[in-house]
Simulated scan of single mutants.
Amino acid sequence: MDCIETDRLILRHFTRDDVDALFALLSDEEVNTFLPMFPLKDTGEAEKYLRDIEDWIQRGGFYDAICLKSDDVPVGCIHVSGDDSHDLGYSLRKEFWRKGITTEACRAVVDMLKRTDIPYVTATHDVNNPRSGHVMRAIGMKYCYSYEELWQPKNFRVTFRMYQLNFDGRQDRIYRKYWDKYPVHFVEEV
């Protein structure tokens, strides 16, 4: 699939021409707060990250740039892992926060996933990042449980909330890998 279009957005593969835009996104400390990586230090690291994105896709994942239709320059990214979690993740430059862009991009990706053989999608967010949980609920995901993880590579404890959206009608299915893996797990009132 080359690209996905919505009313305001184009979701497309990153190209080598996107190095500066990717660096602007992933070098911002505030944007990076809830990402499982440290901020990029230079465009060389952004070029390496582009190669990592290619590897992600080769392993069966989905990873696209979020671009405004007005200029086709990446302002964010959205991805779904190729493993059994089918984990949905996203980030957006902070000047575009609170405009519904992430929700619009996520809805488009979910619509695309519904036409594949993927039976469900999961997503997690740090309890200190409730806006991400709002996006998950806005696209129809349901909260399942919370768990505590020693988060790497940043090496501090994080409580994550795990959400899931089933596509195949099996509403009782819950992806339990994190529940089973981490000894501190519980169900919250959200």
Rank of each mutant, 00 (worst) to 15 (best):
G100Y: 03
V110C: 02
W179P: 10
V158L: 04
Y145Q: 07
K114M: 14
R161N: 15
Y49E: 14
P130F: 09
I57E: 09
T15Y: 01
G44A: 13
F96T: 02
P39W: 06
A21K: 07
I101E: 00
P183S: 07
L40D: 01
R131D: 13
D55R: 13
D64A: 14
Y143F: 14
S146T: 02
D172A: 10
K69H: 03
M162R: 12
D71K: 04
R8E: 01
R12S: 09
R173W: 14
R98I: 00
V80A: 00
L68D: 01
S27Q: 07
E95W: 03
V109H: 00
R59K: 14
Y182A: 05
T122A: 00
L92H: 05
Y182N: 15
V75C: 12
E189P: 06
Y49D: 02
I66V: 15
G140K: 11
L26K: 15
F156N: 06
S132R: 11
A24D: 14
Y182L: 08
G82E: 03
T122F: 02
D84Y: 09
A123G: 04
T122K: 09
S27I: 07
Y143P: 11
N155L: 12
C3H: 10
T33Q: 15
D28G: 06
M141G: 08
C106S: 14
R170E: 11
I118N: 01
